[in-house]
């Protein structure tokens, strides 16, 4: 891997997922527009890894290595085959997908997942169930992405699980990545893993795990604010008054000096 490719990869893979097209523009400037194809292919890799949704009108489709077919992607449940512009994230060239039918397990998981997502995520959330090639496993994926660049924020939710039909087990991970950038750069990230667990109802297990994730998240926020943040800098000194910076400054004693009777 060239030094250039390594650097571009570091930058792309550290970007807020909803800001990739802006990162692409900056990288174009920094590389004098000389490496468009190379940068675009790293972004494609990033999009597949993050299961980024591609849109065509109201329709939104996930891309991943599981639903790739040549240069296109397929959605077996909705029976479409589509191409994706990885910079704009637009889907195009949509055809009917006929090579393979969704399995019964896949359709059932999809229907149940659909109910869960409509109850716990905004209408724009995208989900799917892909068969993992040459296995008895299914990838269950939910993506919820939102942004308002004018209000200086973007956010990305990705949860993904592997359901093993033979063993009736499920494992996976949730990750949340939010970016706020008005006069600054603040990043909030949280992840949690679901260790392989027996289940007779994978979607119920996912719902329980994600509700737990949310509960822990809110508790941790509270702890960070009330304990960690408050421990760094006080709102006001113990005296509850601002410092008298005039002639009176000499009347203050350093706590340490005072304690030592200095």
């Amino acid at each position: 891997m060239s030094e250039f490719e390594k650097i571009v990869r570091d930058i792309v893979f550290d970007s807020p997922p909803e800001e990739i097209s802006l990162v692409y523009d900056n990288l174009q400037v920094l590389s004098d527009g000389q490496s468009k194809q190379q940068i675009a292919s790293i972004i494609q890799e990033f999009n597949e890894k993050h299961r980024v949704p591609a849109a065509k009108g109201e329709e939104r489709y996930l891309v991943s290595e599981y639903n790739k077919s040549g240069s296109k992607y397929f959605d077996p449940v909705n029976k479409v085959l589509f191409a994706v512009d990885h910079i704009t994230r637009e889907a195009s060239d949509i055809e009917e997908y006929t090579s393979e039918d969704a399995t019964q397990v896949q359709s059932d998981l999809y229907d149940e997942l659909s109910k869960y997502v409509s109850n716990f995520f905004p209408d724009t959330a995208v989900f799917n169930v892909f068969k993992i090639p040459e296995s008895d496993q299914y990838a269950i994926i939910v993506v919820s992405n939102k942004k308002s660049l004018g209000d200086f924020w973007t956010g990305y939710w990705l949860s993904e699980y592997v359901y093993d039909v033979d063993g009736d087990t499920i494992s996976g991970e949730v990750s949340v990545d939010a970016h706020y950038f008005e006069d600054g750069n603040v990043r909030f990230k949280s992840t949690a893993s679901l260790e392989s667990a027996q289940t007779d109802s994978p979607i119920v297990s996912i719902k329980q795990f994600e509700n737990e994730f949310e509960k822990n998240l809110i508790n941790k926020f509270q702890y960070m604010n009330e304990t960690q943040f408050k421990g760094l800098r006080r709102r006001l000194p113990v005296t509850r008054a601002k410092i008298n910076w005039g002639q009176g400054i000499g009347n203050y004693r350093l706590g340490r000096d005072a304690a030592q009777g200095a």
Binding site: K146, W153, W157, Y180, V186, F229, R233
Partner: peptide
């Protein structure tokens, strides 16, 4: 300045970020 920034940090770190989370996963039950 530090007093003002401390308040802003508190709002951005603990309110704005949680607001973003709440639009990503919102309960419609």
């Amino acid at each position: 300045i530090e007093s003002k920034l401390r308040s802003m940090l508190e709002i951005v770190y603990f309110e704005k970020t949680l607001d973003i989370y709440n639009v990503l996963r919102e309960r419609n039950d």
